[in-house]
């Protein structure tokens, strides 16, 4: 196994880099979209319930089916993978974001509102800083799930560690299978760890 890596290093790091790139793009787009949707959802209960319900339905569609459904529209390749993964993430992110933001101690909300904060000031100055835990757990969940699901995206030619795995399966190459699993698992663990560290650093700014 080590031998394989030494002999064909490019066969490992290329898919790894592709995977990483996919992860970064997907997470950035997911976060921007989720932030906008969350801000919209926070304006009214019915809107937030409808959104969550909608995304929970989409989330329950098997990923392969969703990839297949989108191919006629966005074709084979990265774009389709990004779109599908971003849509899946919305459920994980929104569910955690909305629950966290609504879970803030009501007396804090009352004090802030009573002092004359607008809805947006309340959201950004009080709700967001007081729900970092939930925000980060959504972020971690979505990242890890993206890393896993992105391996399936290899089936629609999006590249990444999935291609290593599927190649390995097709040609019965144990080295490829092992490296594919090992690298995707490590990527998930490392990403999770980095996010935990980021969260801790933010928490240290306000002991509460």
């Amino acid at each position: 196994m080590i031998e394989y890596a030494l002999k064909h290093p490019d066969k490992l790091w290329k898919p790894l880099l592709q995977h990483l790139e996919l992860l970064l793009v997907v997470m950035i787009v997911s976060l921007i979209l989720a932030a906008l949707l969350t801000i919209t959802a926070m304006t009214s209960k019915p809107i937030s319930n409808t959104m969550l319900h909608l995304f929970s339905i989409i989330y329950s569609i098997p990923s392969l089916a969703l990839f297949a459904l989108l191919i006629p529209i966005t074709g084979l390749g990265k774009i389709t993978a990004i779109v599908v993964l971003v849509i899946y993430n919305q459920y994980l992110l929104l569910r955690n974001f909305i629950a966290g933001l609504n879970d803030v101690d009501p007396s804090m909300i009352e004090a802030a509102t009573g002092m004359g904060m607008s809805r947006m000031q309340l959201l950004f100055q009080v709700r967001v800083p007081l729900s970092t835990k939930a925000l980060f757990s959504g972020l971690r969940l979505a990242s890890v799930s993206t890393i896993g699901m992105a391996t399936i995206a290899a089936l629609i030619n999006a590249g990444g560690l999935g291609s290593l795995l599927f190649d390995g399966l097709r040609t019965m190459n144990v080295n490829k299978i092992l490296w594919g699993s090992l690298l995707s698992a490590s990527l998930a663990i490392v990403t999770n760890g980095i996010l935990i560290q980021m969260e801790k650093r933010i928490q240290n700014h306000n002991p509460s």
Partner: peptide
């Protein structure tokens, strides 16, 4: 919001912002 900015309010539960 305009009404509230003109009024000082001390809530029963204190409600300081922990962060």
């Amino acid at each position: 919001v305009k009404v509230r900015r003109k009024i000082g309010y001390v809530i029963q539960q204190v409600g300081l912002f922990p962060h």
